[in-house]
């Protein structure tokens, strides 16, 4: 496959990842574990795609935020990083370090495009005023799709088409201590992602469940499946205990509400 063809294919995977959140209610096809596996299949190396997908998924966990996200766009970053990792034979960790600046640039493009779409909203107001109803909904389903697809296709295509040789040269020049450092930095990024999830989920009185999950896995050797099953059972038990007064409602905010004692 020539390099233009490859860059186009990876660009299309990027469009698919973007449309996951635009048209499929964020069904999670956009997650690095999925996009990396698809890129691995597209580039003829599924095992490498799967492995870098797992690494990048852990690094980006919690960083893929909802709506007006400003942290580096790890959906785009993950796609570019996996492609670099497979095309240049580098570590996924190293590839992410190179991909993040590109993802930040991609994010700037995202800000521009979301502003343009706000302007289209005013065109839609005018269209409704004139009675052009189909034109108004087309700004959403047609122009929205086109703009969001372009926003992902162009930077990913350019990064892969123009960047692979450059990235190869950079990867070859990186000394071993930096590679080891990036491998450790990837673990810290995983810790950061999990801490972000924790701060999103934990309200007052709920930290105990986080610690319960941690110690159950650390001491008893449970895996994530096991602890999730125990979590569901524990939630059912606690909900069935009425009037205990010790339970708190979990929320995205920090407010503390005693669990109401009513029929489910």
């Amino acid at each position: 496959m020539n390099s233009i063809g490859m860059a186009v294919l990876i660009g299309l995977v990027a469009v698919f990842a973007m449309l996951d959140s635009r048209l499929l209610g964020r069904l999670n096809f956009e997650q690095p574990l999925i996009t990396s596996t698809i890129i691995g299949i597209v580039l003829g190396n599924p095992a490498a795609g799967l492995a870098s997908g797992a690494t990048i998924e852990l690094m980006s966990m919690g960083l893929v935020q909802v709506g007006a996200a400003t942290p580096p766009d790890m959906v785009m970053g993950g796609i570019i990083a996996t492609s670099f990792a497979i095309l240049t034979g580098s570590d996924p960790e190293t590839a992410v370090a190179i991909a993040i600046p590109i993802a930040v640039l991609g994010q700037l493009l995202g800000v521009t495009f979301r502003t343009i779409i706000a302007a289209l909203g005013h065109r839609a107001d005018v269209a409704i005023e004139k009675g052009n109803f189909r034109e108004a909904t087309n700004y959403h389903i047609l122009w929205g799709t086109i703009l969001y697809s372009t926003m992902y296709f162009v930077p990913v295509f350019l990064a892969i088409y123009l960047g692979t040789d450059f990235v190869q040269a950079v990867v070859d020049a990186i000394p071993a201590w930096i590679t080891a450092g990036l491998n450790f930095a990837a673990k810290l990024l995983t810790a950061y992602g999990l801490a972000l999830l924790l701060s999103m989920m934990a309200s007052k009185g709920m930290m105990v469940f986080f610690l319960l999950g941690f110690f159950a896995c650390a001491y008893l050797g449970l895996d994530v499946t096991g602890i999730s099953i125990f979590g569901v059972l524990l939630a059912l038990i606690l909900l069935s205990i009425k009037g205990s007064g010790s339970a708190a409602a979990a929320g995205v905010d920090d407010d503390y509400d005693p669990l109401e004692d009513e029929d489910f």
């Binding site: 999990l194 309200s203 930290m207 999950g213 896995c217 650390a218 999730s228 979590g231 669990l259």
Partner: peptide
């Protein structure tokens, strides 16, 4: 509130488990 509470328990325990097994 009950659904949020149950989601909070399961989610937080899973996050705790991931801290212990995935980093």
């Amino acid at each position: 509130e009950k659904i949020m509470y149950a989601c909070g328990i399961v989610g937080l325990m899973a996050i705790g488990g991931m801290v212990a097994t995935l980093i």
